[in-house]
Design a protein around this nucleic acid. Structure first.
Length: 474
RNA sequence: GGCGGUAUAGCCAAGUGGUAAGGCAAAGGUCUGCAAAACCUCCAUCGUCGGUUCGAAUCCGAUUACCGCCUCCA
């Protein structure tokens, strides 16, 4: 039984989808005014891993994740680059796809853009005004937060305890246009020269929160299963989404709210974010770090835990990943001399490990206990691969299970390509030298290949080699 | 001021009442001509103080440190 920690109730709850066998989830995507930073990547990786686990369990997942492609930052970025907002959006959406593909993040079922849904957004706002939740003020439209009875339910805040301006992000002039400081913008009037759309309230653009209410309900229905995003979105963003959506539909918005923890960077252990300016982009990191290593590092930290992004932690992840890849190689290598048939006892042990894995992952995606089971499997595989006689079906069974489980974390094993004639010739020369106990020559050859990044291993089944992938250790 | 998170070995990190998973690193060993890979062994009383209990990392109280949100942040 799969349980998830629901921010709404602050408890782990049994996950029951609205429609049997289908998971409808919405995850807040980035504002596309720059390359994504590792905090964005963490969120995307966390929810991609969750999605992959649902798929492993046999669910069909409808996964929607938006791009915020118009807001103050987009306008500022366009101005600074002396270009248009849509051009900035196109550039960084393409970069997003490139980065997330490198990290083996599956594309969403739908990646809607705010600007492609302006008509729906305007209708949604009109509906809120008609129901008494929205009001126009000098071309802006605001939401009466106090009118929504459950305001604060997600962040567990009492509306009267909110300290207005505590984030130091509020605009004093905007506050003057509100009936109440706790109200928030649904629609913002355009300043001269800004990108805008015609609306019943004049030229303007959507407020930040409304796009997610509109696009999630548009593509997933008034009520859907899971809404995800970073912890910093709980308040105000997600709180406001609930207020908007439930005021409009009268239905419950999302059944389960999942929030991922932050990435901290550097020794001060401070949250990394675009607004603090201490962010590291995936685009830059991938110049020196193997994307599979970054993926593995983040995917094997439970989604609610903070991640400290340091070189040391990255190195550990690289070592751990290498251990699994080596086990895969060891097993794969024995396929060619394996006997037909299988070993029921081994296969029983594998099934048990996989069952334990599922038990752990069912507990709010406890990936750290889950991955411990994968290491168990790797160990079992290594031991099995050293047996004098191995059975083909059992070997294949271990390989299949190992591959399936690491795939949940977004890892694809590399197949060794052993078809370099020059290397083979040297290996054969070395085998002859060893046969003649000319170890001087044989060691010389091994050193020579090592200098080329090729590592030789003598096994009872012969000599094999692999490339020492430097980047994999970066 | 309100709400929340974290603190376990050199590092990462499980564990929610019964005498501390797992991985990395280090050390020793088996295997090997030597290696590599693998396997085996070894490595902590859980921020601090106090309480409850036969028994607590786990429950309660207090305390310290760090971090986050409070209407632009994943």
């Amino acid at each position: 039984m799969l349980k998830v920690f629901n921010t709404l109730t602050r408890q782990k709850e049994v996950f029951t989808p609205i429609t049997s066998g289908i998971v409808k989830m919405y995850v807040c995507g980035p504002t596309v005014y720059n390359y994504i930073h590792i905090g964005n990547a963490r969120s995307a990786i966390a929810f991609d891993t969750i999605r992959r686990y649902f798929e492993y369990k046999g669910y069909h997942v409808k996964y929607v994740s938006n791009f915020t492609d118009v807001d103050d930052k987009m306008i500022k970025a366009a101005k600074e680059a002396n270009t248009t907002v849509p051009a900035i959006a196109d550039k960084f959406i393409a970069a997003f796809m490139e980065d997330t593909t490198a990290l083996n993040i599956e594309p969403a079922t739908k990646h809607p853009r705010a600007t492609e849904n302006i008509k729906d957004i305007i209708e949604f706002v009109q509906d809120l005004i008609a129901k008494g939740y929205g009001y126009e003020s000098e071309g802006d439209v605001y939401y009466r937060a106090r009118k929504f009875a459950h305001y604060g339910q997600l962040s567990h805040q009492n509306i009267d305890d909110l300290e207005v301006g505590a984030s130091q992000h509020t605009d004093p002039e905007e506050v003057n246009r509100k009936e109440d400081p706790v109200d928030f913008a649904l629609w913002k009037a355009a300043k001269p020269g800004e990108i805008s759309w015609d609306s019943p309230w004049g030229k303007g653009r959507p407020g930040w929160h409304i796009e997610c209410s509109v696009m999630s309900t548009k593509y997933l229905g008034d009520t859907f299963d899971i809404h995800g995003g970073g912890q910093d979105l709980t308040f105000p963003h997600h709180e406001n989404e609930i207020a908007q959506s439930e005021a409009k539909t009268g239905q419950k918005f999302a059944n389960y709210w999942l929030h991922n923890g932050f990435v901290t960077v550097g020794d001060d252990n401070e949250k990394m974010s675009k607004s603090l300016g201490n962010f590291v982009t995936v685009h830059d990191i991938l110049k020196t770090v193997n994307p599979q290593v970054l993926r593995f590092f983040m995917a094997t930290t439970q989604y609610r835990r903070p991640i400290q992004y340091t070189q040391g932690n990255l190195d550990d992840a690289a070592n751990n990943l290498k251990r699994l890849q080596t086990a895969f190689n060891n097993l794969n290598y024995r396929l060619k001399d394996a006997e037909p048939g299988n070993d029921p006892k081994i296969e029983q042990e594998i099934r048990q490990i996989e069952a334990d894995f599922v038990d752990q992952m069912d507990d709010d995606f406890n990936v750290q206990n889950g991955i411990a089971q994968v290491y168990e499997l790797a160990k079992l595989g290594n031991v099995y691969a050293e047996r004098p006689v191995v059975f083909k079906d059992s070997l294949a069974f271990i390989l299949k299970t190992l591959t399936e489980l690491v795939n949940i974390f977004g890892i694809e094993f590399k197949q060794e390509t052993l078809n370099d004639d020059g290397v083979e010739a040297l290996i054969n020369e070395r085998l002859d030298a060893r046969k003649n106990r000319n170890f001087e020559r044989s060691d010389e050859i091994r050193e020579q290949l090592k200098a080329q990044g090729i590592i030789l291993e003598d096994t009872p089944q012969g000599t094999r080699w692999h490339r020492d992938d430097e980047k994999g250790n970066a």
